[in-house]
Design a protein around this nucleic acid. Structure first.
Lengths: 247, 247
DNA sequence: CGAATTGTTGAAACTTCTCAATCCGGGTGG
DNA sequence: CCACCCGGATTGAGAAGTTTCAACAATTCG
């Protein structure tokens, strides 16, 4: 099944298992609700690429912007650096999510996109998508919507996060992760596997790795989470753990 | 002249004095380079509104999203708050800039937009803009471009700013302000009038008002700026003052 | 198994926050 | 015209949180 998706790489075929409207981030729902011909014309533009190994680059800062990408499977971190070399991680993206859209309207990508594990992506040549938008109003609407969604996402995570202490900032991150992975209010397995290092999470949250480590230890002592290698488990229900970071 | 712009409120007529491509933020260059008929069809959608007094609300969080707005004259702050009431300021916008675009694809605005001084705005009903985009590919491209620009803007200010100390964070803010107001590398008057309070700037930068005040005093002692009421002047050339926050 | 990376912990330094007092400037009203 | 008032801005001192630097443990990978 997963294999078929990769080979076929049709946006229309995938992602029927998630409700796009509730996702905080743009999902590759593009093409939902279109006619056969319309979704075919989208599918014909798409090129599948992969697999990328952990550490491999999908696009680089200096590369000319030509395409946006939908992650088919795996995960990706978006990073850049300050002039003095300080690394800066803009975000982590998972299967079903779009990357590269922050370069829309510019000539180059502003960041590097690096695979965190074995990753397959779909390339969507943006110029052609744009042309197609003229013919398919619904597609145009979806592109606009996902751009708006991305702006709102940044506001609700990074902007909001600035006002929170290290431990709450991590809980906000974790809450977002659970939502995006569809784990909110699930019974049974309440743990999430982290494809990125804790160090990367720290940088992404604007913290030193040591500070995050301490925050994690503190949250574990308080009995809110279990902190393991490449894995976090929340103990107790969402309400108990996340209430302090929910709106 | 300014009056004429207000009355006419044509996006095409205004903003011929600035180079859109170098603006870090979406400007109301919408409509540049279109045919007479095309720009007329845009102009016919536009409604001028104002004047808003300082403190008056242009749109509220709860309002249904219908329009984006171009600021004709004056300035606006975009704010919301955390659940505990902590105020949170997403940004300040000036004449020629667009607000409300972060609500695109959603049913409501996520923030309040409050005038900081006497302010005139142009309302652009978004549904109609969207329809027009189908007919005018160039307009579609411009809307996509400005949304991308907004994402990049947030990345280069708020995301980057998180990694900077209080005084550098302010310099980054100031540098952005000078760019947007077209004051970079001007000779002569090097001062900028602040329509917002220093307290608002502090919140926007993720600092306490006292912390910003200390940072300003420090920068003044170092001879980089002159700190006055509702006014900041940079002493020395852009290179000297802003180099530490430039990429 | 050893090397390299990642994660944790400790102690001291540093930055920012908090709370309180004071100052300043603009507006109001006598 | 001046005294008063009030919100914004500044300053001080101590508390709190984060960073830094250093050492070490745990994990992964060759």
């Amino acid at each position: 099944m997963a294999q078929q998706i990769k080979r076929n790489c049709s946006l229309h075929l995938v992602n029927t298992d998630r409700d796009c409207d509730t996702c905080p981030l743009p999902k590759k729902c593009i093409g939902d609700g279109l006619s056969k011909e319309q979704s075919d014309s989208i599918s014909s533009l798409i090129k599948s690429r992969g697999p990328f190994q952990a550490g491999e680059t999908i696009f680089r800062m200096e590369d000319p912007f030509k395409s946006i990408f939908a992650i088919q499977s795996g995960s990706v971190k978006i990073e850049s650096s300050l002039d003095d070399g300080t690394p800066l991680i803009h975000g982590f993206y998972f299967d079903g999510e779009l990357i590269g859209i922050e370069a829309i309207g510019d000539t180059r990508y502003q960041n590097d996109a690096v695979a965190l594990e074995n990753t397959w992506i779909c390339e969507l040549p943006f110029e052609q998508i744009e042309s197609l938008c003229i013919k398919i109003p619904k597609l145009q609407h979806e592109i606009l919507e996902l751009l708006g969604k991305r702006i709102r996402y940044t506001n609700s995570t990074i902007v909001r996060g600035r006002y929170l202490s290290a431990d709450k900032r991590f809980l906000l991150f974790l809450s977002d992760l659970y939502q995006r992975k569809g784990l909110v209010s699930t019974n049974g397995d309440r743990s999430v596997t982290l494809p990125m290092t804790k160090g990367d999470i720290a940088i992404h949250l604007g913290l030193r790795p040591e500070s995050l480590s301490r925050a994690l230890s503190k949250l574990q002592e308080e009995g809110l989470i279990r902190n393991r290698v490449r894995e976090i488990e929340i103990l107790g229900n969402d309400q108990e753990v996340f209430s302090c970071v929910w709106v």
